[in-house]
Amino acid sequence: MNIVKPNYSRPLDFKQGQVDMAHGSGGRAMAQLIAELFITGFDNAYLAQGNDGALLPIITERLVMSCDGHVVSPLFFAGGDIGCLSVHGTINDVAMMGARPLYLTASFILEEGFPLADLKRIVLSMATAARLAGVPIITGDTKVVERGKGDGVFITTTGVGVAREGITLSGDLAQPGDIILLSGTIGDHGMAVLSQRENLTFDAPIMSDTAALHGLVAAMLDSEVRLRVLRDPTRGGLATTLNEIAKQSGVGMMLHESAIAVNQPVEAACEFLGLDPLYVANEGKLVAICAPEDAGRLLEVMRAHPLAREAAIIGEITEDAHGFVQMTTKLGGRRIVDWLAGEQLPRIC
């Protein structure tokens, strides 16, 4: 006699299995994927309730929200993958507002045929990143698109946080005389991804710097220096971020090339591909602009944090009707550090 086990369904095959259209259909297959992968992986009380949304406790402080889509290719690269990147990216965007990130949401667009093994690896990487950061992923969504209509997996995350009392950071607050600090080397993430894609090999692979910066930001805010702007120079690199700030604040900048550190393999890879590290993405660095009297103290605080050991003062804000970001070169000449023109670099975040 055939015995039908109650409530039994065959577990997902995370070794050989693939995403198929049913995983996004809203039916049993989707429920199974959510239960066995996402709820188990992200493991928190909000998700475990299994509702359409998460019911949050009352929050009385000013809220900060930020949202970030991730389409990096390749999905796995030295130093990280699209999973931890999607957690770090949004945590950092919330942190740059001077806020403490509280919750994340995640939305997945999966391509039909994507290996479940890779999906599991990505979800576990997200789960680990979220746990280490202390910011749970409390609700999410999954959609599946037909083969050829996606690129494996795209992940969009949203972050909610609360701004520290009395702190307002904004790109339009930089004033002439203010000092610009940078938390470390530039170009690591972008070149980790690009060198992998272009099959450039070095003695040691270039590692992405992807990291959650809210701890560093908290330490900086604790020091009570007069911070005006925080921003993480991701897509478009340091040059783009500084131009955005200059434009928002209606000021100019004078940078010093010799103060901006670039790891040697990154420099070599940039040289090879004809790129300028100033325009290459970072995922674990921040730019801080503060009042001139506080710059020394801020630098000390930053250097005391493990994610900003190589922090440096890289320039100052100037009065400039043209809003030029300029730089004194290592040779002693002067140049503009302009907006990036023309084609985007390939997808790296």
């Binding site: 040779l331 002693g332 000449g333 140049r335």
Partner: peptide, 8 residues
């Protein structure tokens, strides 16, 4: 241009 050599 990139190294501002005109200034030198």
């Amino acid at each position: 241009s990139r190294y501002g050599i005109a200034d030198l």
